[in-house]
Amino acid sequence: MSIEPSSPAPRPASARRRLLLAAGIAAALAAIVAAYFAGRAGVGAGAARPDSHVRIAGESAAGSDAAAAAGALPTPIKGGVLPAPGAPLKDHFAQLQARANAGDAGAATRLVRDLDRCARLRSTQWRNAGATEDLTRRSTEGMSAAQLRTYQALLEAMELRQQAQRQDQATCAGVDEAMLASLVPNIAQAARLGDEQARACYLERGPLYDARSLIRHPDGLRAYRGTAAALVEAGLAAGDWRVVDLLQQAYEPGSKSLLAGLLGADPLQHYRYLKLYRLGAEAHRADQLDRQLAAVATGLSPAQLAQGDAWAQNTLDAGFQGRSTDGTPPGWEACDF
């Protein structure tokens, strides 16, 4: 038998107000993003970059060349020894930031992970405190042997979470808001230096990963627009299946992601990337993907389908290995640092 979870305590009025405020901010951000990309869409008819897999919605050929030059990725360098794991970030932030800015890929990756841990710490503390209170208030009176074993396992898991939280508190002690506000720019820099997780996160969420910072620094959308295409190209050149999955979702008509706002809906591109993703898929995902492909194919001509199939096979053979679905299960989290 398992223990029935206790009913959550009613949220106080302040919590409800915070939820309403968060919903309002999310709606405002969606409007900002839509207006920004819609405004840019009037610049031109949408030109493909030379030798590019991606198409930026509303970008002229001249703008395409200029953006490609501006978005060129830096060459990563190998830096020195990193601080010990768990070392206080405030003591090493300036050094890590300088090294990341200079192209040190290892420093950029480490800085992103530590900043992300610190950015999540407050919400982690709030969740853990509530879960701990609920668990410790339970009475063991009348529990069966099986229920007691389950309860003991829950207590042990809670202790592990508290240990991890104490480690994060030690790492994040003294980290201020200015440091935390650098999270998204540092994710972008780590992505430019080849960090695959940072690349997937930045392509999917961009400046929306830290909505508070975007409100204060709306130029983050311009930075995203100038960098995303180069990151897509780098991901495809590296055979990164996560980038393929993000692209097939972004090109799907009706997609509301940030990357979709940048690229624009394109059924043919959606088919191409979905076909590429299907070619690398595990057997248990094949039927579902085949049904998706069949649905997309109804809106394309035989010539377009033949071209899409050939492109997908050639792209697969040119540099993709492994199974596309290994690291991209349904609902996978791009920003899981």
Rank of each mutant, 00 (worst) to 15 (best):
P8A: 00
A9R: 09
P10V: 00
P10T: 00
R11S: 09
R11N: 07
S14C: 02
R16F: 10
R16D: 05
R16N: 03
L20T: 12
L21D: 13
L29W: 02
I32N: 06
I32F: 13
A34D: 12
Y36G: 01
F37P: 03
G39Q: 08
R40N: 12
R40G: 14
G44H: 11
R49F: 10
D51G: 11
D51I: 07
D51T: 05
S52R: 12
E59Y: 12
E59G: 09
S60D: 12
S60Q: 08
A62E: 15
S64N: 09
D65S: 13
A66D: 13
A69W: 13
A72E: 13
I77T: 15
G80Q: 03
V81R: 04
V81C: 00
L82R: 01
H92I: 04
Q95R: 15
Q95G: 14
A100T: 09
A105D: 08
A108K: 08
R117Q: 11
R117G: 03
C118R: 05
T124L: 11
G130M: 02
G130L: 10
D134V: 03
L135A: 01
S139M: 00
T140A: 11
G142C: 00
R149A: 07
M158V: 02
L160F: 11
R161D: 03
R161F: 05
R161P: 01
Q162F: 05
R166I: 12
D168N: 15
D168H: 00
Q169Y: 03
T171K: 15
E177H: 11
M179Y: 11
L180M: 07
V184C: 12
V184A: 12
P185H: 14
I187W: 13
R192D: 11
G194Y: 06
G194H: 03
D195Y: 03
D195W: 05
Q197K: 14
A198V: 05
R199Y: 02
R199D: 07
A200Y: 01
C201L: 13
G206C: 04
Y209S: 14
R212D: 11
I215V: 14
I215S: 06
R216Y: 12
R216M: 13
R216V: 09
H217D: 14
G220Y: 10
G226S: 13
A228C: 06
A229N: 06
V232M: 08
E233C: 07
A234W: 03
G235W: 06
R242H: 01
R242I: 01
R242V: 05
Q249D: 15
E252P: 02
P253Q: 00
G254H: 04
S255N: 14
S257E: 02
L258A: 07
L258K: 00
G261A: 01
G264F: 08
Q269D: 15
Y271L: 14
A281R: 04
D290Y: 10
R291P: 08
A294I: 12
A294M: 07
T298E: 14
S301R: 07
G308P: 10
Q313V: 05
Q313M: 13
T315P: 02
T315V: 07
D317R: 15
A318L: 00
G319A: 06
T325P: 05
E333T: 11
D336V: 01
D336G: 00
F337K: 06
F337I: 03
